[in-house]
Design a protein around this nucleic acid. Sequence first.
RNA 1: GGGAGCUUAGCUCAGUUGGUAGAGCAUAUGCCUUACAAGCAUAGGGUCAUCGGUUCGACCCCGGUAGCUCCCACCA
Length: 802
Amino acid sequence: MRELEKYYDGLKTEKEMREYWRENKIYDFVYDKNKPLYSIDTPPPTVSGSLHIGHIFSYTQAEMIARYRRMRGYNVFYPFGFDDNGLPSERLVEKETGVKAYNLPRSEFNKMCMETVKKYEDEFKELWQAMGFSCDWNLQYATISPNTQKLSQKSFIELAKNNRAYIKESPVLWCTECQTSIAQAELDSKDIDSCFYHINFGLGDSVLEIATTRPELLYSVVCIFVNPNDERYKKLFAGRGDPGAPPKVKVPLYNFEVPLLTDEKVAIDKGTGAVMCATFGDSTDVEWTEQHNLEYKKAIMPYGKISDEAEFIAGLRIKAARKEIVRLLEENNLIVKSENISHAVSVHERCGTEVEIIPSRQWYIDVMSKKEELLKAGDKIKWYPEHMKNRYVNWVENLKWDWCISRQRYFGIPIPVWYCEKCETPVFAEIENLPINPIETKYTGVCSCGCAEFIPDKAVFDTWATSSITPQLNLDTAKKYGIEEKDFMPMSMRTQAHEIIRTWAFYTIAKSLYHTNQIPWFDAMICGFVLAKPGEKISKSKGNAKFSPQELIKQYSADSLRYYAATARLGTDMYFDIQEMQDSSKRLITKLWNSSKFVLSHLEDFDPKYKPEKILPVDRWIIERTNEAILESVKWLDEYEIGMARKVADDLFWKDLCDNYIEIVKERLYQPEKHGYEERKSAQYAIYYCLFNILKIYAIYIPHETEYIYLNGLKDFAGEISIHLTEWEKPAEIDSKILEFGDILKQAISDMRKYKTENNLSMRAEIDEAVIKAKPEFKAWLIETEKDFTACSHAKKIAYEF
RNA sequence: GGGAGCUUAGCUCAGUUGGUAGAGCAUAUGCCUUACAAGCAUAGGGUCAUCGGUUCGACCCCGGUAGCUCCCACCA
């Protein structure tokens, strides 16, 4: 057995340990049918730029769970993936190269995307490896890979054939900057400064004042609404009967007439209580258009300009059009007043552009009619922390649109569909031909209408439409290891941050429900964010990501970052304090090193197979404390509370083992001639058990250091080639009597130390008497401990108060 | 406007069956102790946001209020 060096060199050691793990394939997935399976659905990071410390922390927390389960005897299926297709990646490429996707041939742009994505993936992978992640890279997947494309297209075709997915020409959320349809989940809200214009519309010989923030949409006004209970307008409807011809309102400038209708949705106290319904100003306009069966006019074109049909403003961009209309209205004295307001508008989360609603033909997945089933599925999943389920429920209940899955973009998975040139009926690719790009491959069949000419769909899928099948991607990999679907689905656990409950979690649940009629995973582990300060997310754009994760690892070591990342409470945001990280981690890592050094130096002649006939009471105490801590850690980790489990380990290690137990048995270990050889063996047995098990708990947090200590001190005793392949003890019931006995000893030591400190004495100073207060039932154990206690207190005499 | 979380020592936070308030950091004082001065010991420091209720007893359970944070809605 080798001895540990005087100081621990984390940076050097970590590299060596990772090399050791690689060489010995420590984390390679092996499916042992005698062990239960624990599968983790890890977020494939979006390849949209470099990762920051926030990503690192939440991934690390989940990684600790993987390690924990492995050491509890599970087959841990822990794959990693990259979400490398879609708009985020496209935007990254556009930003890095300065090109715009629509200015290039699609194949050329996609090639650029592949190159960029590859570069970042290598960077990501290196980073995860530098953090000591125990995933098996043989299980890796990428959402742009051919196999993923196949599964994603297959998922779509199945849903379309089961009428869960459908194509429809209808108003859709549209980003004029990215020039694509988007889904409700991609909306952000932003407060913007705007102007509320009160405009005079014509009403017979009189006028009707209507307030709007979007005068540029006057051309597309299809009717005016007032609330039926609004006293101001009731008289306008009097005597017209029902159904009567509604009053007509004349739109200014354009001078066409639209009906005046009533709807309960109109807020009486907003503006003048009369609202213009344009196609489309907002989502309420869409609802009204459907409910009241209104016509629609195309006002805004997909590229963000006003339609050619609109007089005065044709071809102008939206903001310019607004300006021009306002100018014309003012010129004609049609504006009664205008008030500056700040109001919330929906913007596209990726680019911040105000979202429009324009009619377009898109593919959707039905979620609106399945809300109840989706909510039930949410109930079946165990959410950690529990209250995170609220976000899911809240989202499902407030859904307004079916999930639009087609995007008019380039770097994504093609929609495997062609349309009949004559009747526009969609035809689907054959499953065995997937993956397929309909632009490159012709459809060879004949349409039911007899036509044989087909037009390919040029759109691609929403990124989430693919990343929502990660359980299926994982299953596909698992099958290669001989795991059957019934043993794999639902997966054990999904881990993710709370910000993507409405996207990733929701979509995955929906797809799982539609494909398999069951939940995708049993547990959802929802991590919090790492914030720079309250309310401020870490991001490059805010410039508060002072250090890159790579730099932090290089400077402070992965174990330091990992130990600190384990401070967080599950689901709760934490603030990253570099000083605190450095101090607390370094302290623990050093302490663990020094105490291990001490323990190992007393194990030269130790034989783990030999259990001393008599284990002394104080040794039984630290063994039992260790067992207690293991059980408590298990309890916390089963609930994904890694921070609480770490605290349990810290308390045992620091307070009980280092501060008290080692101080008590030190002399017994050094001087068997004074304390007895069998007594020394008892202590050896206890320190070995305690250190090994503490290392096993810490192994999930600081895998490098614990492995190094294990390899250089404990491996010869334990046999396994890595501490990460050992299993945690499974202690039976805890003996509380012996724990109580430990508390008595600790109290006595504390009293003794207090006395010495108050008298400015060294801890080694001799004192006349040390006093132990205890119940009489502990008398026998105390007598057995007297030699130890005398040694650690340096008291001439031990007095007892029973 | 609806919902969730938080409010405990100067700072960061624990406190999971309701029974005398805890840790780390910081501060002060002392201690070279056969692992560790990259250490150890001891101490000071809290009307547990606030008001009310239940209870023999409340940081904990219930209700109200305030502040902070987040999610959702608000887009005429």
